[in-house]
Design a protein around this nucleic acid. Sequence first.
DNA 1: CTGTCAGTGGGGAAAAGTGGGGAATAATGT
DNA 2: ACATTATTCCCCACTTTTCCCCACTGACAG
Lengths: 152, 152
Amino acid sequence: MSFFKGREIYSVDTKGRVNLPAKMRKNLSPEANDTFVITRGPDDDPCIYAYPLDEWKKFEENLKKLNQFNEQERFFLRTLLYWADEIVLDKQFRISVPKSLLDFTRIGKEALILGSMDHIEIWDPQIFENYLSKKTESYAVVAESVMGIRKL
Amino acid sequence: MSFFKGREIYSVDTKGRVNLPAKMRKNLSPEANDTFVITRGPDDDPCIYAYPLDEWKKFEENLKKLNQFNEQERFFLRTLLYWADEIVLDKQFRISVPKSLLDFTRIGKEALILGSMDHIEIWDPQIFENYLSKKTESYAVVAESVMGIRKL
DNA sequence: CTGTCAGTGGGGAAAAGTGGGGAATAATGT
DNA sequence: ACATTATTCCCCACTTTTCCCCACTGACAG
Protein backbone atom coordinates (compact mmCIF):
# COMPACT_ATOMS: atom_id res chain seq x y z
CA MET A 1 0.00 0.00 0.00
CA SER A 2 1.53 3.24 -1.15
CA PHE A 3 1.16 6.53 0.69
CA PHE A 4 2.59 9.65 -0.92
CA LYS A 5 3.24 13.03 0.62
CA GLY A 6 5.36 16.14 0.14
CA ARG A 7 6.15 18.06 -2.99
CA GLU A 8 8.95 18.97 -5.39
CA ILE A 9 9.37 21.24 -8.36
CA TYR A 10 11.22 19.52 -11.19
CA SER A 11 11.96 20.37 -14.76
CA VAL A 12 10.15 18.85 -17.71
CA ASP A 13 12.61 18.04 -20.47
CA THR A 14 12.03 18.35 -24.20
CA LYS A 15 10.74 14.78 -24.32
CA GLY A 16 8.05 15.44 -21.73
CA ARG A 17 9.78 13.52 -18.98
CA VAL A 18 9.33 14.35 -15.29
CA ASN A 19 11.37 12.82 -12.52
CA LEU A 20 9.67 11.04 -9.67
CA PRO A 21 11.06 12.48 -6.42
CA ALA A 22 13.27 10.05 -4.53
CA LYS A 23 11.16 10.23 -1.39
CA MET A 24 8.10 9.11 -3.32
CA ARG A 25 9.96 6.27 -4.94
CA LYS A 26 10.56 4.91 -1.49
CA ASN A 27 6.84 4.87 -0.76
CA LEU A 28 6.06 3.00 -3.92
CA SER A 29 5.00 -0.54 -3.18
CA PRO A 30 6.74 -3.35 -5.10
CA GLU A 31 3.40 -4.53 -6.50
CA ALA A 32 3.19 -1.32 -8.47
CA ASN A 33 5.99 -2.72 -10.60
CA ASP A 34 7.33 0.76 -11.41
CA THR A 35 4.14 1.33 -13.35
CA PHE A 36 1.64 4.15 -13.06
CA VAL A 37 -1.73 4.77 -14.61
CA ILE A 38 -2.10 8.46 -15.27
CA THR A 39 -5.26 10.35 -16.06
CA ARG A 40 -6.60 13.86 -15.78
CA GLY A 41 -7.86 15.54 -12.65
CA PRO A 42 -11.28 17.09 -12.04
CA ASP A 43 -12.51 19.93 -14.23
CA ASP A 44 -11.75 22.59 -11.63
CA ASP A 45 -8.28 21.30 -10.94
CA PRO A 46 -6.30 21.05 -14.15
CA CYS A 47 -3.69 18.56 -13.05
CA ILE A 48 -2.53 15.03 -13.71
CA TYR A 49 -3.40 12.13 -11.41
CA ALA A 50 -0.90 9.30 -11.34
CA TYR A 51 -1.95 6.07 -9.64
CA PRO A 52 0.53 3.31 -8.93
CA LEU A 53 -0.60 0.19 -10.74
CA ASP A 54 -1.72 -1.62 -7.61
CA GLU A 55 -3.97 1.24 -6.54
CA TRP A 56 -5.41 1.50 -10.04
CA LYS A 57 -6.32 -2.17 -10.07
CA LYS A 58 -8.64 -1.49 -7.16
CA PHE A 59 -10.36 1.15 -9.26
CA GLU A 60 -10.75 -1.26 -12.10
CA GLU A 61 -12.65 -3.66 -9.92
CA ASN A 62 -15.17 -0.94 -9.13
CA LEU A 63 -15.45 0.01 -12.78
CA LYS A 64 -16.28 -3.53 -13.78
CA LYS A 65 -19.34 -3.42 -11.57
CA LEU A 66 -20.87 -0.65 -13.66
CA ASN A 67 -23.62 -1.35 -16.16
CA GLN A 68 -22.58 -0.22 -19.59
CA PHE A 69 -26.13 -0.21 -20.85
CA ASN A 70 -26.95 2.62 -18.52
CA GLU A 71 -26.26 5.85 -20.36
CA GLN A 72 -24.86 7.78 -17.42
CA GLU A 73 -22.49 5.08 -16.34
CA ARG A 74 -21.35 4.58 -19.91
CA PHE A 75 -20.57 8.26 -20.19
CA PHE A 76 -18.62 8.18 -16.99
CA LEU A 77 -16.54 5.24 -18.13
CA ARG A 78 -15.71 6.81 -21.46
CA THR A 79 -14.57 10.08 -19.96
CA LEU A 80 -12.43 8.41 -17.36
CA LEU A 81 -10.79 5.89 -19.66
CA TYR A 82 -10.35 8.42 -22.44
CA TRP A 83 -7.58 10.10 -20.51
CA ALA A 84 -6.14 7.03 -18.88
CA ASP A 85 -2.75 5.78 -19.92
CA GLU A 86 -0.35 3.25 -18.51
CA ILE A 87 3.26 4.30 -18.24
CA VAL A 88 6.37 2.57 -16.92
CA LEU A 89 9.14 4.47 -15.15
CA ASP A 90 12.43 4.47 -17.01
CA LYS A 91 15.72 3.48 -15.39
CA GLN A 92 16.06 6.99 -13.98
CA PHE A 93 12.57 6.77 -12.42
CA ARG A 94 11.04 9.31 -14.77
CA ILE A 95 7.45 9.53 -15.94
CA SER A 96 6.94 10.21 -19.60
CA VAL A 97 3.85 12.39 -19.78
CA PRO A 98 1.72 12.24 -22.96
CA LYS A 99 1.57 15.50 -24.83
CA SER A 100 -2.21 15.67 -24.58
CA LEU A 101 -2.01 15.77 -20.79
CA LEU A 102 0.72 18.39 -20.81
CA ASP A 103 -1.55 20.54 -22.97
CA PHE A 104 -4.58 19.95 -20.79
CA THR A 105 -2.73 20.90 -17.62
CA ARG A 106 -0.77 23.76 -19.25
CA ILE A 107 2.46 22.35 -17.93
CA GLY A 108 5.49 23.95 -19.53
CA LYS A 109 9.15 23.72 -18.54
CA GLU A 110 8.49 23.04 -14.89
CA ALA A 111 6.16 20.80 -12.96
CA LEU A 112 5.03 20.60 -9.37
CA ILE A 113 4.85 17.03 -8.11
CA LEU A 114 2.56 16.59 -5.16
CA GLY A 115 2.14 13.48 -3.04
CA SER A 116 -1.52 12.92 -2.26
CA MET A 117 -2.00 9.67 -0.36
CA ASP A 118 -2.85 6.93 -2.83
CA HIS A 119 -1.81 8.95 -5.87
CA ILE A 120 0.55 11.63 -7.12
CA GLU A 121 -0.53 14.89 -8.68
CA ILE A 122 1.39 16.86 -11.27
CA TRP A 123 0.64 20.56 -11.72
CA ASP A 124 1.94 23.58 -13.47
CA PRO A 125 3.48 25.47 -10.50
CA GLN A 126 1.79 28.75 -11.40
CA ILE A 127 -1.63 27.18 -11.76
CA PHE A 128 -1.25 25.51 -8.40
CA GLU A 129 -0.41 28.89 -6.87
CA ASN A 130 -3.58 30.31 -8.34
CA TYR A 131 -5.58 27.38 -7.04
CA LEU A 132 -4.31 28.00 -3.53
CA SER A 133 -4.83 31.75 -3.59
CA LYS A 134 -8.34 31.45 -5.02
CA LYS A 135 -9.51 29.62 -1.94
CA THR A 136 -10.98 32.25 0.31
CA GLU A 137 -11.49 29.98 3.27
CA SER A 138 -8.50 29.58 5.45
CA TYR A 139 -6.79 26.26 5.87
CA ALA A 140 -7.73 26.21 9.55
CA VAL A 141 -11.42 26.65 8.85
CA VAL A 142 -11.51 23.93 6.26
CA ALA A 143 -9.42 21.67 8.42
CA GLU A 144 -11.93 22.01 11.19
CA SER A 145 -14.91 21.32 8.98
CA VAL A 146 -13.27 18.35 7.33
CA MET A 147 -11.47 16.79 10.25
CA GLY A 148 -13.18 18.31 13.26
CA ILE A 149 -16.04 15.89 13.39
CA ARG A 150 -13.65 13.02 13.80
CA LYS A 151 -11.47 12.20 16.71
CA LEU A 152 -7.85 12.18 15.66
CA MET B 1 -9.41 -10.98 -19.07
CA SER B 2 -8.86 -7.88 -21.15
CA PHE B 3 -9.12 -4.38 -19.80
CA PHE B 4 -8.76 -1.66 -22.39
CA LYS B 5 -8.12 1.98 -21.65
CA GLY B 6 -6.63 5.07 -23.26
CA ARG B 7 -7.17 6.50 -26.68
CA GLU B 8 -5.39 7.19 -29.95
CA ILE B 9 -6.24 8.97 -33.16
CA TYR B 10 -5.14 6.96 -36.16
CA SER B 11 -5.65 7.33 -39.84
CA VAL B 12 -8.03 5.22 -41.85
CA ASP B 13 -6.41 4.24 -45.13
CA THR B 14 -8.10 3.96 -48.49
CA LYS B 15 -8.83 0.30 -47.82
CA GLY B 16 -10.74 1.03 -44.62
CA ARG B 17 -8.04 -0.29 -42.35
CA VAL B 18 -7.48 1.05 -38.83
CA ASN B 19 -4.50 0.16 -36.70
CA LEU B 20 -5.00 -1.29 -33.23
CA PRO B 21 -2.89 0.78 -30.79
CA ALA B 22 0.07 -1.11 -29.37
CA LYS B 23 -1.02 -0.58 -25.77
CA MET B 24 -4.33 -2.25 -26.49
CA ARG B 25 -2.65 -5.15 -28.21
CA LYS B 26 -0.83 -5.82 -24.97
CA ASN B 27 -4.09 -6.09 -23.08
CA LEU B 28 -5.47 -8.53 -25.59
CA SER B 29 -5.69 -12.03 -24.15
CA PRO B 30 -4.34 -14.94 -26.21
CA GLU B 31 -7.77 -16.58 -26.23
CA ALA B 32 -9.02 -13.73 -28.37
CA ASN B 33 -6.93 -15.23 -31.14
CA ASP B 34 -6.44 -11.88 -32.86
CA THR B 35 -10.13 -11.93 -33.63
CA PHE B 36 -12.74 -9.28 -32.91
CA VAL B 37 -16.49 -9.17 -33.24
CA ILE B 38 -17.53 -5.70 -34.28
CA THR B 39 -20.97 -4.17 -34.21
CA ARG B 40 -22.59 -0.79 -33.85
CA GLY B 41 -23.02 1.17 -30.65
CA PRO B 42 -26.25 2.39 -29.02
CA ASP B 43 -28.49 4.80 -30.91
CA ASP B 44 -27.19 8.01 -29.40
CA ASP B 45 -23.59 6.97 -29.72
CA PRO B 46 -22.72 6.51 -33.37
CA CYS B 47 -19.59 4.44 -32.94
CA ILE B 48 -18.24 0.96 -33.53
CA TYR B 49 -17.95 -1.57 -30.72
CA ALA B 50 -15.19 -4.13 -31.13
CA TYR B 51 -15.15 -7.05 -28.72
CA PRO B 52 -12.21 -9.43 -28.57
CA LEU B 53 -13.53 -12.89 -29.30
CA ASP B 54 -13.25 -14.12 -25.72
CA GLU B 55 -15.16 -11.15 -24.31
CA TRP B 56 -17.77 -11.53 -27.03
CA LYS B 57 -18.37 -15.13 -25.99
CA LYS B 58 -19.23 -13.93 -22.49
CA PHE B 59 -21.51 -11.35 -23.99
CA GLU B 60 -23.20 -14.05 -26.06
CA GLU B 61 -24.05 -15.92 -22.90
CA ASN B 62 -25.96 -12.89 -21.69
CA LEU B 63 -27.74 -12.55 -25.01
CA LYS B 64 -28.92 -16.14 -24.81
CA LYS B 65 -30.74 -15.28 -21.61
CA LEU B 66 -32.96 -12.83 -23.44
CA ASN B 67 -36.49 -13.79 -24.30
CA GLN B 68 -37.01 -13.78 -28.05
CA PHE B 69 -40.77 -13.73 -27.64
CA ASN B 70 -40.60 -10.34 -26.03
CA GLU B 71 -40.84 -7.77 -28.78
CA GLN B 72 -38.35 -5.30 -27.31
CA GLU B 73 -35.74 -7.90 -26.67
CA ARG B 74 -36.24 -9.36 -30.12
CA PHE B 75 -35.70 -5.94 -31.66
CA PHE B 76 -32.57 -5.37 -29.62
CA LEU B 77 -31.12 -8.68 -30.69
CA ARG B 78 -31.91 -8.19 -34.35
CA THR B 79 -30.31 -4.75 -34.50
CA LEU B 80 -27.23 -5.87 -32.65
CA LEU B 81 -26.69 -9.01 -34.70
CA TYR B 82 -27.55 -7.34 -37.98
CA TRP B 83 -24.43 -5.21 -37.69
CA ALA B 84 -22.22 -7.83 -36.10
CA ASP B 85 -19.27 -9.13 -38.04
CA GLU B 86 -16.27 -11.24 -37.14
CA ILE B 87 -12.93 -9.93 -38.32
CA VAL B 88 -9.34 -11.09 -37.91
CA LEU B 89 -6.44 -8.69 -37.45
CA ASP B 90 -3.93 -8.68 -40.29
CA LYS B 91 -0.22 -9.18 -39.71
CA GLN B 92 0.19 -5.48 -38.89
CA PHE B 93 -2.59 -5.69 -36.26
CA ARG B 94 -5.07 -3.69 -38.30
CA ILE B 95 -8.83 -3.96 -38.26
CA SER B 96 -10.53 -3.89 -41.61
CA VAL B 97 -13.77 -2.03 -41.01
CA PRO B 98 -16.78 -2.87 -43.23
CA LYS B 99 -17.91 0.04 -45.34
CA SER B 100 -21.41 -0.08 -43.89
CA LEU B 101 -20.07 0.64 -40.41
CA LEU B 102 -17.83 3.44 -41.65
CA ASP B 103 -20.91 5.03 -43.19
CA PHE B 104 -23.02 4.56 -40.09
CA THR B 105 -20.41 6.13 -37.84
CA ARG B 106 -19.46 8.89 -40.33
CA ILE B 107 -15.81 7.97 -39.99
CA GLY B 108 -13.65 9.59 -42.66
CA LYS B 109 -9.89 9.82 -42.89
CA GLU B 110 -9.29 9.65 -39.17
CA ALA B 111 -10.61 7.51 -36.37
CA LEU B 112 -10.54 7.79 -32.60
CA ILE B 113 -9.85 4.46 -30.94
CA LEU B 114 -11.03 4.33 -27.34
CA GLY B 115 -10.35 1.59 -24.83
CA SER B 116 -13.48 0.94 -22.80
CA MET B 117 -12.89 -1.99 -20.43
CA ASP B 118 -14.09 -5.15 -22.14
CA HIS B 119 -14.28 -3.64 -25.62
CA ILE B 120 -12.81 -1.05 -27.94
CA GLU B 121 -14.76 1.78 -29.48
CA ILE B 122 -14.06 3.48 -32.79
CA TRP B 123 -15.40 6.99 -33.37
CA ASP B 124 -15.12 9.85 -35.75
CA PRO B 125 -12.98 12.24 -33.66
CA GLN B 126 -15.28 15.21 -34.20
CA ILE B 127 -18.41 13.29 -33.29
CA PHE B 128 -16.78 12.11 -30.09
CA GLU B 129 -15.85 15.67 -29.18
CA ASN B 130 -19.47 16.67 -29.56
CA TYR B 131 -20.57 13.73 -27.46
CA LEU B 132 -18.19 14.67 -24.65
CA SER B 133 -19.03 18.34 -24.60
CA LYS B 134 -22.77 17.75 -24.55
CA LYS B 135 -22.86 16.54 -20.98
CA THR B 136 -20.76 17.35 -18.00
CA GLU B 137 -22.80 17.17 -14.83
CA SER B 138 -23.72 13.52 -15.01
CA TYR B 139 -20.02 12.70 -14.89
CA ALA B 140 -19.52 14.21 -11.48
CA VAL B 141 -22.66 12.59 -10.14
CA VAL B 142 -21.68 9.12 -11.20
CA ALA B 143 -18.10 9.63 -10.14
CA GLU B 144 -19.12 10.50 -6.63
CA SER B 145 -21.68 7.76 -6.18
CA VAL B 146 -19.72 5.03 -7.88
CA MET B 147 -16.13 5.72 -7.12
CA GLY B 148 -16.44 7.38 -3.78
CA ILE B 149 -14.52 10.32 -5.16
CA ARG B 150 -15.93 13.70 -5.86
CA LYS B 151 -14.86 14.24 -9.42
CA LEU B 152 -11.99 12.83 -11.34
C1' DC C 1 38.99 15.03 -1.34
C1' DT C 2 36.26 11.24 -2.90
C1' DG C 3 32.29 8.27 -3.37
C1' DT C 4 27.40 8.01 -3.78
C1' DC C 5 23.00 9.43 -4.91
C1' DA C 6 19.78 12.61 -7.09
C1' DG C 7 18.42 15.26 -11.08
C1' DT C 8 19.06 16.38 -16.12
C1' DG C 9 20.08 15.77 -21.00
C1' DG C 10 20.68 13.49 -25.47
C1' DG C 11 22.16 9.72 -29.07
C1' DG C 12 20.71 5.66 -31.21
C1' DA C 13 18.41 1.19 -31.64
C1' DA C 14 13.97 -0.79 -31.78
C1' DA C 15 9.19 -0.58 -32.24
C1' DA C 16 5.02 1.47 -33.91
C1' DG C 17 2.31 3.61 -37.53
C1' DT C 18 1.36 4.17 -42.55
C1' DG C 19 0.99 3.18 -47.37
C1' DG C 20 0.83 0.45 -51.55
C1' DG C 21 1.92 -3.45 -54.95
C1' DG C 22 0.41 -7.78 -56.36
C1' DA C 23 -1.32 -12.61 -55.85
C1' DA C 24 -5.39 -15.17 -54.57
C1' DT C 25 -10.27 -15.17 -54.33
C1' DA C 26 -14.88 -13.83 -55.31
C1' DA C 27 -18.40 -11.50 -58.11
C1' DT C 28 -20.36 -10.15 -62.42
C1' DG C 29 -21.63 -10.33 -67.23
C1' DT C 30 -21.81 -12.42 -71.83
C1' DA D 1 -18.46 -22.05 -68.90
C1' DC D 2 -15.31 -18.62 -69.49
C1' DA D 3 -13.54 -14.09 -69.47
C1' DT D 4 -13.45 -9.77 -67.22
C1' DT D 5 -13.75 -6.94 -63.38
C1' DA D 6 -13.70 -6.17 -58.58
C1' DT D 7 -12.34 -7.25 -53.89
C1' DT D 8 -9.71 -9.14 -50.31
C1' DC D 9 -5.63 -9.73 -47.88
C1' DC D 10 -0.83 -11.03 -47.53
C1' DC D 11 3.54 -9.09 -47.66
C1' DC D 12 7.15 -5.71 -48.09
C1' DA D 13 8.97 -1.01 -47.37
C1' DC D 14 9.23 3.59 -45.64
C1' DT D 15 8.74 7.08 -41.88
C1' DT D 16 8.10 8.55 -37.37
C1' DT D 17 8.04 7.97 -32.59
C1' DT D 18 9.28 5.80 -28.47
C1' DC D 19 12.24 4.39 -25.07
C1' DC D 20 16.49 2.18 -23.56
C1' DC D 21 20.93 3.28 -22.22
C1' DC D 22 24.87 6.00 -21.11
C1' DA D 23 26.96 10.24 -19.52
C1' DC D 24 27.37 14.66 -17.12
C1' DT D 25 26.58 17.81 -13.13
C1' DG D 26 25.84 19.15 -8.50
C1' DA D 27 24.81 18.24 -3.62
C1' DC D 28 25.94 15.99 0.42
C1' DA D 29 28.30 12.66 3.60
C1' DG D 30 32.21 10.27 5.13
